[in-house]
Amino acid sequence: MSGMRSYGDPCGVARGLDVIGERWALLVVRDLLLGPKRFNDLLAGLPAVSPNVLSQRLRELTEDGVVRRRDLGPPTRVRLYELTEWGRALEPLLLQLGRWGSQAPPPLEGTLGTDSLLLSIKAAFDPARAAELRGVYEFRIDADTYLAEVADDSVQIRRDTASGQPDATLSTDLDTLRAVCDHQITLAAAVKSGALRLNGDPSARRRLTDLLLAPFEPAPQR
């Protein structure tokens, strides 16, 4: 453990919290679940964190073996942060925490980022629907592209592009995507306005939108 504070408890829960219990640590892990990011990308996804605190968390998580740095050589000369295999093992915990936390009252301020929206798909995915939702889908959101693959009984989502032709593609900006998911506008209205585009055959487009909107369907009234 790189930090100065420890619970001093040999229990696995306490030892885990010694590593990821500091403020912002789990949110850094959350924002790396879909793939590597640059420092500035992490900073943009965590607007309430200061650069100094983010640097400190990345340093601690790197020293503890949860995150690793990867430097891309010329001509890009970019430093990326990505999860180690041990860090990726936190995904089921984070998805379950997201399911649990979604039952708490939402904050008065703040909006979901792209990664959080797409991770909601993974958290809400029903394996029983895998056969009907099977396919390869691209989400082009602002300047980023994400690939969602539904196969067997799971959905895998990562920052990437399809190696071949995806079954369907959704292109939009984050504000429009949030508005659709928050039911401020309908998907049909967003398509009609040109703010959102769907490509692919009708069946594949329907599967893509079902996959996207499933976590955001209104809960049934009791």
Rank of each mutant, 00 (worst) to 15 (best):
V191E: 13
S154W: 10
L95V: 13
R79M: 12
Q56M: 10
S120Q: 01
R77M: 12
S116F: 04
T176C: 15
G98R: 15
A189V: 02
L212G: 02
L212E: 08
V28S: 04
G16M: 06
G35W: 07
G110T: 03
Q56D: 12
D201W: 03
F139P: 00
G98I: 08
A128L: 12
L93Y: 10
R140F: 05
P74W: 10
R134V: 10
L212Q: 05
S154F: 15
P220I: 06
D201S: 03
V180S: 09
P36W: 10
R70W: 10
D9Y: 00
V19F: 01
A168T: 02
E60P: 00
L198N: 01
R197V: 13
P75K: 12
E109W: 09
L34H: 06
E132I: 12
A143L: 15
A148D: 05
G113A: 14
V155A: 11
I141R: 05
F125N: 00
L17D: 00
T169P: 01
D126Q: 08
L133Y: 12
C11K: 01
L46V: 09
K192E: 11
R57S: 02
Q165R: 14
G98K: 09
S154P: 04
I185D: 11
N199E: 11
R5K: 01
P74R: 12
L17A: 01
R178A: 10
L117Y: 03
P106D: 01
A214M: 10
A204S: 15
A204C: 08
S203G: 07
L90N: 04
L147K: 04
L95W: 09
W100L: 13
P36F: 13
R207P: 06
L108P: 05
G135M: 10
G87T: 05
D152K: 04
D9K: 03
A25Y: 00
I141W: 04
G164A: 15
A188C: 03
G200P: 01
A189T: 07
R59E: 07
L72I: 14
D18I: 03
P127N: 11
L133S: 04
E138G: 05
I121T: 00
L93E: 01
L170K: 02
L83S: 07
A168D: 02
P215G: 05
G3Y: 08
V191G: 03
L32N: 05
L26I: 07
R23S: 06
I20H: 04
L42G: 00
L198R: 00
V66W: 01
C11R: 06
A190L: 11
L26F: 00
I141L: 07
L43I: 00
R129C: 12
A48G: 13
A123T: 02
D144Q: 14
A25Q: 01
T62V: 10
L54G: 07
K122A: 03
D175I: 09
A14I: 02
N199D: 07
L90Y: 05
T209V: 14
P127C: 14
S6N: 01
P47L: 15
A48Q: 11
L208W: 03
R68E: 13
L54R: 04
S2P: 02
E60Q: 13
A89D: 06
E22P: 00
L34P: 00
A204G: 02
R207Q: 10
